[in-house]
Write a protein that binds this DNA or RNA. Structure first.
Lengths: 175, 175
DNA sequence: CAGCTTCGGTTCGGTCATTGAACCAACGTG
DNA sequence: CACGTTGGTTCAATGACCGAACCGAAGCTG
């Protein structure tokens, strides 16, 4: 967390986790990475985050092994940030937070998580009620809901208007 | 979150959840409340949090309906903060974070969550592998593990050296 | 009943993170 | 060779967090 002091007095796995992903914006960056966002500019526009903060978050997330920075083009040199297994392992926590936020603080349903095989919406523990199994992240589809009002200037929001399988890179079409 | 601007541009339940519980210390306060901490001074000592910050967090958590402030004694007037159903609903997210923190950033196991009925450690989705059912929070026992080195000056740490059922108020014995 | 302690705060000055805007550099394109 | 795109860094201002001090109500102690 690096704010004066960390949660050093806490002997607790939750505190340890929050030292890594508890700063402002961090979990939203991981969320976007799981949604398939990979490029600096897409994170920037979609999150509306200050550039300096985004740079800092990408740096620490890379250092902590949650994102992997990889060169995808040499000339001009361009890097992308791809979520690692350690980052994907945050998915249950993010899904639980999303469910809590939706049930307690939202009227309209913005998006839903569905099982790619059968289209059923995931249950509270990330399971598919129809198939009776826990659905791995790669088999989850993000489906837009009725309450959505996307920013037309944001290519990520536009790309998410179609159902989108998690982890796969987003296809950004230019404006 | 109230930091300059909130996550207003985000159309996302995760962002909405983080606006409520994403500030520094907030989730740790909720964690303690689920562990059974109820009194201002116990939060203060156990968390090592500045008093002003604790007051602010208790206030917003109460306003958001996550804690319930109730008078438990008239003379002298004393209030306690009891976690509500909305706060208890954060348990799956906290458990997922604890699992992630432990598996990725900790060597020794500090504590484990076990099914009160049979003593089995909970699985990754909060289920009891032996009984095959999802365990409600009230039936979870927090059991100290080998890596624990509690602060003897902290009554909450001392109380948690014995197995402790979640939600039940902590019995604080004076120094 | 004077003085000390406990509990649950508020106030305050200093520090540190976050913000938004500006700037920068490498490269490709017309 | 001007301009756009991408991926940053720098900087001043703002505001959250920090630790320490202070405060008030009530009880207990001698």
């Amino acid at each position: 967390m690096a704010l004066g002091k960390d949660y050093a007095t806490q002997e607790c796995s939750i505190a340890r986790a929050l030292e890594v992903v508890g700063e402002r914006w961090t979990l939203l960056v991981v969320r976007d990475a799981i949604y398939g966002v990979r490029r600096y500019n897409d994170f920037l526009v979609h999150l509306g985050i200050p550039r300096a903060v985004l740079s800092a978050r990408l740096k620490t997330l890379t250092e902590e092994g949650i994102l992997d920075k990889r060169r995808y083009q040499e000339a001009p040199p361009r890097d992308e940030y791809v979520v690692t297994a350690r980052g994907i392992a945050l998915w249950p926590a993010l899904r639980a937070l999303a469910l809590w936020g939706r049930e307690n603080f939202q009227e309209t349903q913005l998006r839903s998580f569905r099982h790619a095989d059968c289209g059923t919406e995931l249950g509270p523990y990330g399971e598919c009620p129809a198939c009776g199994t826990v659905v791995p992240v790669a088999d989850v589809v993000l489906v837009p809901g009725p309450g959505l009002d996307p920013d037309p200037a944001d290519p990520v929001s536009r790309a998410l208007l179609k159902p989108k399988r998690l982890l796969e890179p987003l296809e950004i079409d230019p404006v």
